[in-house]
Computed example of a mutant assay.
Amino acid sequence: MSSEPNTLTDIFGLTGKVGFVTGGASGLGLEISKALALAGAHVVVADINLSGAQNASESILSLGAQSIAVQIDVTSEQSVQNAVSTAVAHFGSIDILFNNAGIADPVPSLLHEYDTSNWHKVISVILTGTYHTSKAILPHMLKQGYGKIINIASMWGLSGSSSVFPIPAYTAAKGAVVNLTRELGLQYAKENIQVNAICPGFYRTNLAGGAYGKKEFVDAITAFTPMGRIAEAHEIRGPAIYLASSASDFMTGQMVVVDGGCQAK
């Protein structure tokens, strides 16, 4: 049983905690990394793009937090183990894991026209990457008797996307991450490790390549979103801190949907 909090910092603060963010060099991962830093955590920025991770880590240092950059290929179990070992050697522990690394379907396609190599690539990064990183970090959380795992899923993990565009590998992978979140939430519920997911809608990042620069695409997804706008990347910070902090200590195996109302339709 946790002690009663007396301040907002007691509820949402992360002073002294260590966060590990995959895909932390850009997009939602960068915003999550910054949010952790602002809440007082030390941040491991893990990304396949090492120079990008180093730049992100430097920006976090400028916020007054401690941070290191590590290169990681979430599709490689050995690469993940190496990155986790480096992080633990530097900070001594990992308290918070954000499984954020992901890619979009390179070419939106109907399934019978879908490129098989692209299918395996998307599944490998999103689903297998979540497996690799969670598997590597859970033993450290079990040893210390505490942990938070937050998977970045998608609103397309809860429903099909083809009313807007066909992205079968992405929706399949994110749907699997949603149910893996439920499974891990149950497996580790008695170990003081909470496993939850964020299911974002349309956020302005580079995940969709140059799509956000195309008026037709922007008009379509804006019209699809009940709030009538696309979220800015920094708007992920609030949900991220909620799930990373003690505010969510009695919550596990759940999805926080932040999609401007899409799932309500």
Rank of each mutant, 00 (worst) to 15 (best):
1 M>C: 04
2 S>P: 07
2 S>C: 00
2 S>G: 12
3 S>R: 14
10 D>S: 01
10 D>E: 12
16 G>A: 12
16 G>V: 08
17 K>I: 03
18 V>K: 00
21 V>G: 03
23 G>M: 14
28 L>W: 08
29 G>D: 09
31 E>P: 03
35 A>R: 04
36 L>F: 06
39 A>H: 01
41 A>S: 10
41 A>Y: 10
42 H>I: 02
45 V>M: 07
45 V>T: 01
51 S>L: 11
52 G>W: 07
56 A>E: 06
57 S>C: 04
60 I>D: 01
66 Q>L: 14
67 S>T: 06
71 Q>H: 12
72 I>V: 14
74 V>N: 12
77 E>Y: 14
79 S>G: 02
88 V>K: 02
89 A>G: 03
96 I>S: 02
98 F>S: 01
100 N>F: 08
102 G>T: 04
102 G>A: 01
102 G>N: 03
104 A>C: 10
105 D>I: 05
112 H>N: 05
113 E>D: 10
114 Y>T: 01
114 Y>L: 05
115 D>P: 00
116 T>V: 15
121 K>S: 00
121 K>F: 05
124 S>M: 11
125 V>Q: 03
127 L>Y: 14
128 T>P: 00
131 Y>I: 08
133 T>M: 05
138 L>V: 10
139 P>F: 12
143 K>N: 10
145 G>M: 13
149 I>A: 02
150 I>Q: 11
151 N>R: 09
158 L>E: 12
167 I>Q: 15
168 P>H: 15
169 A>I: 10
171 T>A: 15
174 K>M: 13
175 G>P: 10
182 R>F: 11
183 E>T: 15
183 E>C: 13
185 G>Y: 12
185 G>L: 06
185 G>T: 06
187 Q>G: 01
188 Y>K: 05
189 A>N: 05
189 A>F: 09
189 A>D: 08
192 N>V: 05
193 I>S: 06
194 Q>M: 11
195 V>F: 07
196 N>A: 05
198 I>M: 03
198 I>E: 07
201 G>R: 07
202 F>L: 09
204 R>M: 12
206 N>W: 00
206 N>T: 14
208 A>F: 11
209 G>Y: 10
210 G>F: 00
211 A>N: 08
211 A>R: 14
212 Y>L: 09
214 K>H: 06
215 K>D: 14
215 K>F: 03
216 E>R: 00
216 E>M: 02
217 F>R: 04
218 V>G: 04
227 M>A: 08
229 R>H: 15
230 I>N: 01
230 I>P: 02
232 E>K: 13
235 E>P: 03
235 E>C: 13
235 E>H: 14
237 R>T: 01
237 R>I: 00
238 G>H: 09
239 P>C: 06
240 A>V: 05
242 Y>T: 08
243 L>I: 01
243 L>Y: 01
244 A>G: 06
244 A>R: 05
249 D>N: 14
250 F>Y: 13
251 M>Q: 08
257 V>Q: 05
258 V>L: 14
259 D>R: 11
260 G>L: 13
261 G>A: 12
261 G>V: 10
263 Q>F: 11
263 Q>W: 08
263 Q>L: 15
264 A>Y: 06
265 K>Q: 12
